[in-house]
Simulated assay, not measured.
Amino acid sequence: MGIKIFLPLLFTLFYSIGQAQSVIKIGLIADPQYADKDTRGSRFYRNSLDKLDSAVSAINREEVDFTVMLGDLVDAGPKDLAPTLLRLEKLKEPVYNILGNHDYVDVEDGAHLYKSYKMPNPYYAVEKGEWLFILLNTNELAEYSTRAGSGQREAWKNLNDVLKTEKRSNDQPWNGGISITQLKWMEKQLRKAQSASKKVIVFTHHPLYPENGLEALNNREILTLIEKYSVVKAVISGHHHPGNFASYKGIPMITLEGMIETSDENAYGVLELDEHQLDLHGEGRMTSRKIDF
């Protein structure tokens, strides 16, 4: 083979390898809501353990870089947590949890709940390659997550009073919001990502958009911040079990279907990210989506 032919082929080979290495794969699970209690309506609480087993096995086969569990791992608080964590521990790669409103049931001090879920902090960020993943805690300001008389309970009350005055439909006991401190932390992360030319995915339990009564209490403040940074490529959430999708000023807002629903049909997925595209491969009830950036 002549040198003039060999060099372009060599360049193409190395370019292809570089492209393959740039793909990030992420397992996605939302709202298993396991509990050792009888079925109610469309929620089959005990069945979630078998569903988690199936999802973990499938995600392991996909050789993901990590998995994100988007909240409500359990239905009635940490008393049912042990068997669910046992399933997640079978994942070959790290699992990053975020908290949902059901995770706080019968919790005396919500500020320290994250430790039970093997999380580094109540909200945190994960870097991988050219990506930054921001995992928010949209339960920070909620009646169910704060102590009576605390500053955060007062902040929640003030926020909720504003929503009532504005006649918003999301002033519900199962919704929460984020503090000014968390909002400032998020902006710091976005600035860092923008300076480093990293792309960002934001994960939340409560959706930010569309507004259907299940969105985070101060979703509009969070969205106002997000829209300032073009590095944000998508927001992925749980909480709304039927799933949902909308575009907010060009940013995809994906709500994942909840695993708890139906007796035997599962809901989980694998997200593939490269420089130009988001490709969500949904299994069972989880919707597959392919979105160009």
Rank of each mutant, 00 (worst) to 15 (best):
D80V: 00
F66Q: 05
N97V: 00
N47Q: 11
L132A: 10
S57F: 13
K51V: 00
S57E: 14
L135V: 09
D106S: 14
S57W: 09
L91H: 07
H102K: 08
N139A: 03
S57M: 10
R43V: 09
D109K: 10
K51L: 03
D65T: 00
I134M: 11
P122Q: 05
L81Y: 05
E140M: 05
F133P: 08
Y114S: 09
T67E: 05
D75P: 02
P122I: 05
D103S: 03
Y104W: 06
A58S: 13
R40S: 13
Y45Q: 02
L85A: 06
N139S: 10
V74N: 05
A111F: 00
L91Y: 01
D106F: 13
G71Y: 05
Y104S: 03
Y117G: 04
S57A: 14
D72M: 05
A55Y: 02
G77P: 07
A76I: 14
K115V: 13
R46I: 04
L49R: 08
K51S: 06
G71D: 09
L70A: 09
G41V: 08
D72P: 08
Y124T: 11
Y45W: 10
L49V: 06
A82W: 02
G100P: 03
L136Q: 04
S48A: 15
A76Q: 12
L85P: 06
F66M: 07
K115C: 08
Y124K: 03
F44E: 04
N121D: 15
K37N: 11
T84N: 11
S48M: 13
Y104I: 04
N121I: 02
G100T: 04
N137A: 10
K37L: 09
Y114A: 04
K37S: 07
P78N: 00
D103H: 02
Y96A: 08
T67V: 14
M119H: 05
V56G: 11
E130A: 13
K118L: 14
L99G: 03
L135Y: 01
N47G: 13
A82Y: 12
K37D: 13
H112M: 08
D103N: 05
A76S: 15
Y96H: 15
E127T: 10
L136K: 03
F66C: 03
L73R: 02
P122D: 12
